[in-house]
Amino acid sequence: MAEYFTRMGDGEALWQSEDELRADVEAGVEDAVKRGKAKPLDDADIAHLMDILKMPEKNVSVERGCEGIHTFDAGTLKLPIRSAVPVSRHVTLLIHERILCSDTMELCNTDYSFKMVKNCAPEEAMQMEQAQQDMIMPVFYGAMPNLGLYTKPDGQFDNWAELLPQGKIKEAMDAQEGAAEQCYEDMLYISSLQAEAGACGIQFDTAGASGDADLLAALKTTKALKEKYPDTCVTMGMANEFTLGMHGKLEFEGDKLAGKYPRDQVQSCAKAGVDMYGAVINTNSSRSFAWNLARSVTYVKECTEVATIPVLVNAGMGVGGIPLSAVAPTDATTRASKALLEIGKADGL
């Protein structure tokens, strides 16, 4: 029986027969249905996904007409910091526009959290203003809410991750509410400076990383920002496929945030005024690429069916079905991109 080259969720090479691939695809779909109560992929979608997984080419591409936009988070971290290329952030933006042909790009600080940007926010806005003179593609300013930074000893609030195991539920909830309010104020201040510097938009990345209070701060900031600067675009990328209920009772516009999956997250984002939503589906490194990709596509397809705003799927190391490895193999990234756009009907990545 023919075997097909594929990978495990940690990137390790794996050869699977068609039956093994299909069994993993069906199990991945089933996991999304069971955990997230997602609508399963239909037979045609599964057949299409199997075709993508079995393609003999090393790298694959989307069919004509299915192209989506290619965006970046942690934008200017990638060349000068992570890859240690000695170029400025301004030059990084130009490289992305003129050489890598990115559709959008993001200016960001090395410490990628809004709280850490506060002390240099005016200088970051100056950098944005200069960048906008030279750039044609949309340039965003991005950072994470990262609510955990507001806990002691870095911040003023008690750490809810320590309070909860002690049974101090009320104290943990109060700490999160206080931190979310302070985070909201910081994000609105920084985002406003960026909007006034001519940023095309603000990117709230990894929203919900510290749970529902983290997401609430990002949604509240979006709403306030859009009221102040209606022409400034907001993109919001999630931290994971399931909003953690570290608080558990927080609501935005009457909707409880804890426990939301992509189909519900996108609707809360739209309600806040978010212009583009970034879906995140985490990779299970102990399962195969086929399992992870099928699970991701199931969540994304359901999300794009209900979305009123563009859905850009986070597709990188450890998310969007892509293996959890520092250097993502292109056989996996291109297959994931194709499946997320053609079957998941995503607007971009």
Binding site: P138, G201, C233, D275, M276, A307, I309, P310, D347
Partner: peptide, 12 residues
Amino acid sequence: MVMKGMRIGEAK
């Protein structure tokens, strides 16, 4: 798409 919040098909 960025400035008008359009889905990809509509934006194209």
